[in-house]
C-alpha cells in the first residue's frame, strides 16, 4: 500500500526483518532510523544517541532488560520508551566522582531517544515524518 510521502517516509520496514537480538539500522528515505522488536512490539527511533550522537544501530539490544545501547559510550535506553536508564561508566569511574570541580553529574539532563511514530500495515512499518 502506497502512503502519502508528505506524511510518511517512503521506505517502510518489513516487520519480519526485526526478529533478532540486534537493533536494525534502516534508511527511511531521508532519515536514518533504528528499529527493534521488543516484547513482540516494534519500536522505531532516530538512529541518534541523545548523549553524543552515536549510532544506536551499532549497539546491542538486551531482550531481558528491555534496553538498547549506544556503541560509543555504552549508555542504555529503554527499548519501549527510549528513556535513558543506565550509564555503565558510573560504576567504572565511581572512585573518581567528585574529583573535578567542573564535573557536575547532578546537572545531567534527562536523555531520551527520539521516538518515531508509525503505522503498521500488512507487516510493513510506515514511519511518519516528524
Amino acid at each position: 500500500m502506497l502512503r502519502d510521502e508528505k506524511a510518511f517516509f517512503p521506505n517502510p520496514i518489513a516487520l519480519t526483518t526485526l526478529a533478532g537480538s540486534s537493533p536494525l539500522r534502516v534508511d527511511l528515505g531521508g532519515l536514518e532510523a533504528v528499529a527493534v522488536l521488543h516484547a513482540g512490539r516494534p519500536f522505531v527511533y532516530r538512529d541518534l544517541c541523545p548523549h553524543m550522537g552515536g549510532p544506536i544501530s551499532g549497539g546491542d539490544y538486551d531482550p531481558g532488560k528491555g534496553t538498547v545501547s549506544c556503541p560509543w559510550h555504552g549508555y542504555r535506553f529503554d527499548a519501549a520508551t527510549g528513556a535513558h536508564v543506565f550509564n555503565p561508566n558510573q560504576e567504572t569511574f565511581a572512585c573518581m566522582t567528585g574529583l573535578y570541580k567542573t564535573h557536575k553529574p547532578d546537572a545531567a539532563p534527562a536523555l531520551r531517544l527520539q521516538a518515531l511514530a508509525f503505522v503498521l500495515d500488512a507487516g510493513q512499518i510506515w514511519v511518519r515524518r516528524p
Partner: peptide, 17 residues
C-alpha cells in the same frame, strides 16, 4: 561543547577546561 558540559565526565576535566 559536549565535552565541556557540566555533567560530562572525562579524565582531568578541570585542567582541560
Amino acid at each position: 561543547n559536549a565535552y565541556l558540559r557540566d555533567h560530562h565526565f572525562c579524565y582531568h576535566k578541570d585542567e582541560f577546561v
